[in-house]
Amino acid sequence: MSTETQKQEAGGVDGAGKRDTLSVTDNRTGQTYELEISDGTVRAMDLRAIKVSDDDFGLMAYDPAFTNTASTRSEITYIDGAAGILEYRGYPIEQLCRGLHYLEVAYLLIHGELPNQEQLDAWTHEITIHTFVHENVKSFMQGFRYDAHPMGMLLASDGALSTFYPDANKIKDESPLPADHPADAKMPTLAAFAFRHNMGSRTCIRTTTCPTPATSSRCMYKMTELKYQPDPRLERALDVLFILHADHEQNCSTNAVRAVGSSQVDPYSAIAAGVAGLYGPLHGGANEQCLRMLRRSDARTTSRLHRRREGGQGAADGLRPPRLQELRPARADHQEGTRRRLRGHRHEPAARHRARAREASRSRTTTSSRKLYPNVDFYSGLIYEALDCRSDVPGAVRDRRARAAGSRSGSR
């Protein structure tokens, strides 16, 4: 902005004293400009004052993929991938994974503070009552092909929910219940429907209340049992996966939700845009790809895993993704179950391969020198396999289920 940018003659910058400003000389004109620096950034709009002539539009910043552009101020999630740090509202992820359930973490992300018992009870109730969806939602989800990709189903059905709640786009109305809470609450129901449709299982009303890991696993796995009792290790694994993926600050899907939400569309449509982002092979699809790779028992798998990590999101994510450390206990919980399931199972070669890939990743000299490790997709892939999730299912169930809370990660 011109008020913040003072045009000065070249060489006219006062060198005495340190200031939080950046002096830039435009060699086309010899003019020097002083841009304000705050929070380690300069405002891209300040560049517009840099012109060759009065009718010049002014300089712009060119930044494909916003690689070095901050799009918001946020007090929600802090990530330092290189240092292995992930914090939600200042709480380290390892503490949250050990002591909390997903719904508490969702409350923390949205409200900024951990809930006390009374707040948690009210929150759980609020989310639970909004997990129910109109019967018509079931009808149109049944219209998908038997092998429809769950992410495609989730994307479409979430967008369709906006037609059930025409008032949801009145986002500025003072309301006792923000419209985004029901939008979050319905996500696990839709994800469970998509999961069960994909398996060819019937959905029933009892599968629609899934705010906790116990009910979540029931949503996904209940078959003919009169009373479904989930394996506590399975519950824990789901909980940890949901918490780990609850937010990851300004990634592709969050950016999509924010960009589309900036039009003041309803939360369902904005979240559908985020689902679409996660549908992409470079985003949530990375996990899918990893699972497929694990199951493919060809001899090239190990080296491809390495390439995947080197070029893929895992590497960009932070070289030693902080989420990874928290997956290990959950993975250990599941090792026994995995082994049991895999014994005599068609994925036995994949199990051997995983062991080989892990071994290779430990021993490779480039692995440690280049700070390359099996990433969160690798280890969560192992857990999904133990959970009997087909390769295209986890993205839908995990990412959207978990990230509904965090996808609006913004300035709040």
């Binding site: 494909p64 552009t69 101020r73 946020s74 007090e75 200042g90 709480y91 508490e104 951990l114 300004q250």
Partner: peptide, 30 residues
């Protein structure tokens, strides 16, 4: 967009203004 070698997955940065390194408090003490 796909053929443009400068394009990649869109992931903006953020200015983090929140708290750092808080300690977990058990629910009974909140």
């Amino acid at each position: 967009m796909i053929d443009d070698s400068e394009q990649k997955i869109a992931r903006p940065r953020q200015i983090y203004t929140g708290e750092r390194e808080r300690s977990f408090v058990p629910i009974a003490d909140r």
